[in-house]
Amino acid sequence: MTQPYNKPLPQRSPENEPFWAGLENREFRIPKCNDCGHWNWVPYPACRNCLSTDQDWALTDGKGKIFSYTVVHRGPGGFRDDVPYVLAMVEFPVGARTPIVLGTMVDVDPDAVHTGMPVKVVYEDIEGEGVTIWHFAPDA
């Protein structure tokens, strides 16, 4: 019997459902304003730039580069046995005021991680929890 997943998971709020459904379909979506073109991460009901509520969950190619990173040697709660693990902030080059997304890195040598490194979104379906989460992996 496998261990149940014991790390915090997103509550999957109804207003963000297109995002979480997108992850199940291997799509990484970021709200984009239809009035001014601004990309908004993390999502809010209205655009930060112009306050329009006319936003779409725009599809990205799931590719970005590392803005900053850390190798965690002391993990909280359910992460304590995962150390060392890499936590990365990844910039998505979609426009001005680039959105930066936080995630853990998988399939990576911690010593090889560096700022500017190209990465891609990868997906993990959490068994029995009805949610898919994202990670990053090197984009070879």
């Binding site: 997943y5 509550q11 693990y85």
Partner: peptide
């Protein structure tokens, strides 16, 4: 632990931060 704790959608704890 039978269920993973649920936190707001964009909470940094989801990622081990």
């Amino acid at each position: 632990i039978r269920k993973a704790p649920r936190v707001p959608d964009w909470d940094f704890n989801i990622h081990g931060a």
